[in-house]
Design a protein around this nucleic acid. Structure first.
Length: 484
RNA sequence: GGCUCGGUGGUCAAGCGGUUAAGACACGGCCCUUUCACGGCUGUAACCCGGGUUCGAUUCCCGGUCGAGUCACCA
């Protein structure tokens, strides 16, 4: 049988990290078995509708490479793939009425006020607030009359009162609950829209979904789903519940608390492929213990048995490390295509060789947003104090720095062919002539050229990029500062 | 509170009755070196608690504890 999974997000306006991870696993479960991955937009809650939210979903799936086989713009014959569109076909009401017919569901005309007072009277006791089945005993005539008079209604699922219901989850194993714990949940809301729980079951069945993958917060409502499948006489899918992605030991990662969404991470300079790689590892691990892999490699490695039951805390430090790995290992062409435009935006001096600067940065970047602070000195030498010239390990003092800088001025002025290897040879010769250590010359030069305690690249590399004129200007500036 | 599910270093995470309890991130040290970074080496640090079962429990069972989820006309 063909494996079919679906990603069923609600358009809320951003892509939550936990949801993205769910989508990833759904994609992998299907694709590791040659199956199909389907996108279905769940927008039955009209109050939460956000303009443009659907585009964020499309865009995220696109740039992460989670390509779906069927969805709003790719019909596989099970569409429409947007629930509000599906609604118009009347399927949810049709199936709900089928259940009413079978005696597995019933009309309920109770008012909001009555339900509220029911809850209040139950609030402090041990008994939890279950619907009291007031409308279950309504006669056929009473129901017809209510319907005819246009009284608002909902349709409720009739739960068994005795026995237990169990299901086996691929991650959590077999879970059993007492049927008496189950509330007669609403299937069709008074606005005629199906509830999430109901639409989900109907759609998953109609779309032949074989594996339902979702957060563990649905674990406790899954028995109700199974009862629904039974009521219809349908086969329930394989359930795969996922532990939550946490921000810390006590709180789930959530955009509402200001935690980063996928879009935020991209804005912070993380690469989509690094984010995917990292979140794949939050709650799953491969049997071979590797950590860095492409989406294609993930498809090969992925196995449900590697999923974990316990929550995982999102660790930005590790994501940052991983992002750095991706940048370091990127091939030059791709790297330059990403970094060059950013550098061109930052660096104003158009005489500088952007490509050389970019390449200098590759081993030092962890996120793309590290770029500005790393290259700011190229355009303009920052203000600095001469204590920067003192470096214990380089055995360099301000006095040594001064004499070294003075000594290299004529050497550099004498270079006609300003190339890194030539600069290198000349300076190294000077080191030999002066009988000092490499660092005693090179550290002061690097400092004079950057005006910063650290810089991407050393003396020769910076001199090469800055050019002869600017290099000498900055060295003379250094001499001037040191002479004060 | 009821029900459900979890608990291996600070974090992610191997482990499936016998191991010196992997590995990665972070952190410390050392080396390389013209700074930082990169790279290499290395160090600190863990099985929630109590009972069983067993020749032997991190692994199995029971209880406790801590934590999370759920108990909506939200998904």
């Amino acid at each position: 049988m063909e494996i079919r999974t679906r990603f069923a997000p609600s358009p809320t306006g951003y892509m939550h990290i936990g949801n993205l991870r769910t989508a990833l696993y759904e994609y992998l479960i299907a694709k590791s078995q040659g199956g199909k991955f389907i996108l279905r937009i769940e927008d039955t809650d009209q109050e939460r509708y956000v303009e443009g939210a659907v585009d964020i979903i499309y865009n995220t799936l696109k740039i992460t490479g989670l390509e779906y086989d069927e969805g709003p713009d790719k019909d596989g014959g099970c569409g429409p793939y947007i629930q509000s569109e599906r609604m118009k076909t009347g399927i949810y009401m049709k199936y709900a009425l089928e259940l009413v017919e079978k005696g597995e569901a019933y009309y309920c005309f109770c008012t909001k006020e009555r339900l509220d007072s029911l809850k209040e009277s139950n609030a402090e006791g041990d008994a939890f607030a279950k619907y009291d089945r007031h409308c279950l005993s309504l006669s056929k005539e009473e129901i017809d009359e209510n319907l005819k008079s246009g009284k608002p209604f909902v349709i409720r699922q009739k739960m068994p009162q005795e026995g237990t219901t169990s299901f086996t989850d691929a991650v959590y194993g077999t879970i059993t609950v007492e049927n008496s714990e189950l509330d007669d949940q609403i299937l069709i809301k008074s606005d005629g829209m199906p509830t999430y729980n109901f639409a989900n079951v109907v759609d998953d069945h109609l779309m032949n979904i074989t594996h339902v993958v979702r957060g563990s917060e649905y674990l406790s409502s899954t028995p109700k789903y199974n009862l629904l499948y039974n009521a219809f006489g349908w086969n329930a899918p394989q359930y795969v519940h996922l532990p939550p992605v946490m921000k810390d030991a006590h709180h789930k990662l959530s955009k509402r608390n200001g935690d980063a969404s996928f879009g935020d991470l991209i804005d912070k300079g993380y690469l989509p492929e690094a984010v995917i790689n990292y979140i794949a590892l939050l709650g799953w691990s491969p049997s071979d213990n590797t950590e860095i892999f492409t989406l294609d490699e993930l498809k090969e490695k992925f196995n449900i048995s590697g999923l974990s039951k316990s929550p995982a805390i999102f660790d930005t430090a590790k994501l940052t490390w991983m992002n750095g790995e991706y940048i370091k290992n990127m091939d030059e062409e791709k790297y330059l295509s990403i970094v060059t435009p950013r550098l061109e935006n930052i660096i104003k001096n158009k005489n500088l060789d952007i490509k050389k600067i970019a390449l200098l940065l590759q081993k030092r970047l962890e996120t793309l947003n590290d770029i500005p602070s790393l290259v700011d000195f190229f355009d303009e030498l920052p203000e600095y104090t001469t204590d920067l010239y003192v470096h214990k390990k380089m055995k360099t003092t301000e006095e040594i720095a001064l004499s070294s800088l003075k000594a290299c001025v004529p050497v550099l002025e004498g270079i006609t062919d300003w190339k890194e290897n030539i600069i290198h040879d000349k300076l190294m010769n000077l080191v030999t002539d002066l009988g000092i250590k490499n660092g005693q010359l090179l550290w002061p030069v690097r400092t004079a050229l950057s005006g910063k305690p650290t810089s991407p690249g050393g003396a020769m590399e910076l001199a090469d990029i800055l050019g002869k004129e600017e290099t000498l200007k900055r060295i003379k500036k250094g001499i001037e500062l040191l002479e004060k």
